[in-house]
């Protein structure tokens, strides 16, 4: 474990917590893409499937973190699609998730480190995570604005994989560890946030709201 990966995981936890708090406190999921949250839930379940297969006692933080990610993302989907369904902005959350899932699944079958079920699921989860935020960014571009709390959520969510890139540089240099598939997908994922990062740093930090087109 290194400082970049530690802060990356903390940033990821923060993002999940910020979104849960926003929906729970405001009792509304306006401005939140339910599709992105569904895709994240699929990512966690397919990536941490080992938790369900050979359940090992919760002997380390990693197992606990995996369970937190899975349960928090499923609970977020429950809040969006059931509890606060009336506030779900289905009209603007209109990006076709199939256009993200099918290519990720196809690519996972073509480019992977080992052609076995667990590895293909892990690879699918990595590819899907890289594009899972697109419905959320699409929704913001359709509504033309983002609530400040949602901007903080997006900043934490984007920072997590950006920090993981630093972690991969660190591990390459000190541990000669390379996980090419995760690195390439992580770079693509972070690039997708660049536009938002620019708006966040030039606007939200100064107390303004993000309004599109900028």
């Amino acid at each position: 474990m290194n400082i970049f990966r530690l802060f990356g995981d903390l940033s990821h936890l923060a993002a999940i917590a910020i979104l849960l708090l926003k929906i729970w406190k405001t009792r509304s999921c306006a401005g939140v893409s339910g599709k992105t949250q569904l895709l994240f839930a699929v990512c966690f379940i397919t990536r941490y499937i080992d938790l369900f297969l050979h359940f090992v006692s919760l002997y380390n933080t990693e197992k606990v973190m995996k369970l937190i990610y899975i349960s928090a993302s499923v609970f977020t989907c429950y809040l969006i699609f059931f509890k606060f369904k009336a506030t779900y902005d289905g009209n603007h959350d209109s990006m076709r998730a199939e256009f993200l899932i099918v290519p990720a699944a196809g690519l996972a079958c073509l480019i992977n480190t080992k052609f076995d079920a667990i590895e293909i699921l892990w690879t699918f989860s990595i590819y899907l995570e890289a594009v899972a935020i697109l419905p959320q960014l699409f929704l913001i571009s359709k509504t033309g604005e983002a609530e400040t709390i949602t901007s903080h959520y997006l900043f934490a969510q984007g920072s997590y994989r950006a920090l993981y890139i630093l972690n991969w540089i660190y591990r390459y240099h000190y541990e000669s560890h390379v996980d090419t598939i995760a690195i390439v997908a992580g770079v693509v994922q972070t690039i997708l946030y660049c536009d938002f990062f620019y708006l966040y740093i030039t606007k939200v930090v100064k107390g303004q709201k993000i309004v599109l087109p900028a």
Binding site: D9, H12, K114, D116, E119, W122, S176, H177, D179, A182
Partner: peptide
């Protein structure tokens, strides 16, 4: 060194 395909990150 991790054996092939083992991923030790979240």
């Amino acid at each position: 060194k991790l054996h092939e395909g083992q991923h030790d990150e979240l």
